[in-house]
Lab assay of single mutants.
Amino acid sequence: TETRTFTDEREARRFEQEARDNGKDVQVRESNGKFEVRVK
Score class of each variant (00 low, 15 high):
R4S: 06
E18K: 08
N32R: 05
A19K: 05
G23T: 01
F35P: 00
E2G: 06
E9T: 02
V28E: 01
N32D: 11
E11S: 07
R13F: 06
E16K: 00
A19E: 08
T3M: 11
F15N: 02
E36K: 03
V37C: 05
T3W: 14
G23N: 06
F15T: 02
T7S: 11
E2P: 06
Q27I: 13
D25S: 10
E2W: 13
T1Y: 15
V28K: 02
T7I: 10
F35H: 03
D25L: 12
F6D: 03
E36Q: 07
N32F: 07
D8S: 10
R20L: 10
R20D: 01
V37T: 00
Q27M: 12
F35T: 03
T5V: 14
G33K: 03
R4H: 14
F35D: 01
R10E: 12
T3Y: 12
R20P: 01
F15M: 04
R14F: 07
D25A: 09
E16T: 05
A19Q: 14
D21G: 09
T3G: 04
R4P: 03
R20V: 07
V26F: 02
E16Q: 06
N32H: 08
E2Q: 09
S31E: 12
Q27H: 10
E9S: 05
F35I: 09
K34L: 14
T1K: 06
E18T: 09
V26E: 00
T1E: 13
G23V: 02
N32S: 07
E2I: 14
S31L: 14
V39I: 11
T1A: 10
A12Y: 03
V39P: 02
G23L: 03
T7L: 10
E16W: 09
V39F: 07
R38S: 14
E30K: 10
V26Q: 01
V39R: 02
G33I: 00
T1D: 14
T1H: 11
K34P: 01
D25E: 13
E36Y: 14
R29L: 14
D21E: 12
F35Y: 11
E30V: 13
N32C: 08
D21I: 10
G33Q: 03
V28R: 03
R29D: 07
D8G: 03
R4V: 11
E18V: 08
V26T: 07
G33M: 02
R29V: 15
S31V: 15
A19I: 04
D8F: 03
K40Y: 14
T5G: 03
Q27A: 10
V28S: 04
N22I: 08
G23E: 03
T3V: 15
T7A: 10
K24M: 14
R14L: 12
E36F: 11
F35A: 00
A19L: 11
R20N: 04
F15G: 01
